[in-house]
C-alpha cells in the first residue's frame, strides 16, 4: 500500500506504524461524571467496519507525523490522507 503523505508525497506503508481507529483522537473528558465508562469504551471498544475506515498511521520510519487516513477495509484502497494535527485543529483543538 502507498500512503500519499500530505508533506512528503507517496510513501510505502511499511514506513508507518498503524495506530488504529482515528476515533482515538477524541479522548474522553476525564472530569465527566461517567468518565470511567467512557474510557472503557475509548480504550477497548471499536466500530471495526467492513468498508471505509478512518484510521491513524504514524510515520515512524519517516517524519514522525501522525496521519488520518481513510481506507476501505474490504479493498485496502486509500481515499484521503490528512495530517492528524490539521484534523485536530479543525475540531478546535490547540494541537
Amino acid at each position: 500500500m502507498i500512503i500519499n503523505h500530505p508533506i512528503l508525497g507517496p510513501r510505502d506503508s511499511a514506513e508507518f506504524t498503524y495506530m488504529g481507529d482515528a476515533a482515538l483522537l477524541d479522548r474522553p473528558d476525564w472530569q465527566a461524571k461517567d468518565a470511567l465508562l467512557q474510557f472503557v469504551d475509548y480504550g477497548y471498544l471499536r466500530d471495526n467496519p467492513a468498508g471505509p475506515h478512518i484510521e491513524l498511521w504514524y510515520h515512524e520510519q519517516g517524519d514522525r507525523s501522525f496521519l488520518v487516513v481513510t481506507r476501505d477495509t474490504t479493498t485496502h484502497e486509500i481515499s484521503s490522507v490528512k495530517l492528524a494535527s490539521d484534523v485536530a485543529r479543525g475540531r478546535g483543538r490547540s494541537k
Partner: peptide
C-alpha cells in the same frame, strides 16, 4: 497489521 476484511495481504 491494519484493519482488513479483504482476505488477502500485502507484500511487505
Amino acid at each position: 497489521g491494519y484493519n482488513s476484511y479483504a482476505q488477502r495481504g500485502n507484500l511487505p
